[in-house]
Structures are given as structure tokens and as C-alpha cells.
Computed example of a mutant assay.
Amino acid sequence: MRNAEASKERILEAAMAEFSAHGIAGARVDRIAKAAGCNKNLIYIYFDNKETLFATLLQKHLLRVYEDIAFTPDDLPGYAARVFDFGMSRPDLMRLLAWYNLEQQHAVPPERGAAHGAKVEELAEAQRAGRVGGAFPPHFLMTAVMTLATAYTAANPFGAPLDADSTKDLVALRGAVSAAVGLLAQQDGAAR
């Protein structure tokens, strides 16, 4: 059993490199098998097809993100900073998400939708309790937080590609992201 689990992990590691570089349509099972040091048929035995392999890979990493980055509606700037740190340290995963969004016509995996929905509800509750400003609806605010936090990752066409110097000082950039989120979430609605 340990051998099978080790083989699956090697396949998933090779698949991460292949899918993040080429997307689902452009990825080749032959290249994944070669990089994983296994027979191509083994991939089909473990994962059925390329799409299931991609979905398994994405779910594995997204579950880790949900567990590792605690959502704190009372500290949206801090949350945005943690998401920024994660996104900047994982360009492969950010590219994987970009490919998923491009190729899956926005079909959201149930776990991802549930995690997002829970965050929006926590944010709505914090707004109702007056702990977070209500200038923006919770869905919009959550989208804005995530967009700002990931604006300079490898997957975003506007951040670093248009401003190559922007990522030279990640501490300052992180601070700017956090401050912008703070303005969006402030109590008095001055961010309007």
C-alpha cells in the first residue's frame, strides 16, 4: 500500500508541474508519467482520466489552503496579507487555478463553493454585528479582498506583468494590499 501511495504522490507532483504550465487541454499524460517515473497506464488506474487527475490535484491543494489560511472577518487586512503570502509563494497553484477558471467555464468544485459561501456568511454576520463596515455587500467585499490579495500572483494579467517593479519589495506590496483591504472594510463607509 505504501508503494501505491508513493506512486500517487509522484504522479500528483508531476501533474502539478504539467497542469500549471499547460492547463488541462495542453497537459499530456505521457509527460506526467515520464516525470513521475511510472507507466502511463498507472495514471489511468489511479485517476481514470486526465480530468479526474486535474480535479484530484486541485482539490488536494485547495483543501490545504482552506485549512492553512484561517479566515478572520474581524481582521480582513490580516487575512488578505496571509492570502497574499500564500499566493506569492505558490505560483504553480495560482497558475493551476487560472487554468481551471479558463477551461472549466467557472464550474466551482463543491468544496470550494462551500468554503467561499461560509466566508461570505461570516463576513455578513460581522457586518450585521458592526465589526466590519457595511459600505459594500459581503459577496462583493469578499471578491474584492481575494482579488487584491492575489493581484500580483503569477495568474493575474494586471499586477506584475504590467508593473515589473511591483514585486521587488514584497513587504511594501503586502502592506499596500492590507491597507487597501482595510479601507474597503472600514466602519464609517468612507471607502465609497
Rank of each mutant, 00 (worst) to 15 (best):
I24T: 09
A25Y: 14
G26T: 07
G26L: 13
A27E: 08
A27G: 14
R28P: 00
D30H: 15
R31D: 14
R31T: 11
I32T: 13
A33M: 09
K34D: 15
K34C: 07
A35P: 02
A36R: 10
G37W: 05
G37S: 10
G37D: 06
C38Y: 01
N39M: 01
K40L: 00
N41E: 07
N41M: 15
L42R: 01
Y44F: 15
Y46F: 14
Y46N: 13
F47A: 11
D48G: 05
D48M: 10
D48W: 08
N49M: 12
K50N: 08
K50V: 12
E51Y: 12
L53Y: 12
L53M: 08
L53I: 11
L53E: 08
F54H: 12
A55V: 03
A55W: 06
A55L: 10
T56Q: 11
L57V: 09
L58C: 05
L58K: 06
Q59T: 15
K60I: 07
H61C: 02
H61M: 09
L62F: 14
L62N: 14
V65T: 04
V65D: 02
E67S: 11
I69E: 01
A70V: 10
F71W: 02
T72G: 00
P73Q: 03
D74I: 00
L76W: 01
P77W: 03
P77I: 02
Y79L: 02
A80F: 03
A80L: 06
A81I: 05
A81Y: 05
V83N: 02
V83G: 04
F84I: 07
F84H: 09
F86V: 02
F86G: 01
F86S: 05
M88D: 04
M88F: 09
M88E: 11
S89W: 06
S89F: 06
R90Y: 08
R90T: 09
P91A: 10
D92F: 07
D92N: 10
